[in-house]
Amino acid sequence: MHEMSLVQGLLGQLHELAKEHNKEKVISVSMEIGPFSGVVIDSFQFGFDILARDDALTREAILLIESPPALYRCCSCGMEMKAEQRPERCRHCSETLLSPVGGDDLVLRQVEME
């Protein structure tokens, strides 16, 4: 459950941003969480719901999470394929060795404050 400590880090970052821009309330937070980031989106959302409500700055904040689809590259022919779950074989050449491509991002994109 490292999502809790990641949410704590996020709240710390929001406090810094609010101070920097002289704002008192966070309205919305947009995040990108990649499919290979090792972060469970539901757990992250759950952690945010608990911790943000305890904090005057973020009490009413909405958390928006976008997760791009997982992308795999065939180790034999190089074909890239999007998939919800790891494909058993390459759709082009039937190779079974497929490498995940990128998708490990855990990015705070934008914050709306007032």
């Binding site: 990641l6 880090g9 996020l10 970052q13 941003l17 821009h21 995040m31 991002d105 855990l106 990015v107 705070l108 994109r109 934008q110 914050v111 709306e112 404050m113």
Partner: peptide, 8 residues
């Protein structure tokens, strides 16, 4: 709206 685009 502040654009941050920084990894957590």
């Amino acid at each position: 709206v502040v654009e941050v685009h920084q990894s957590l």
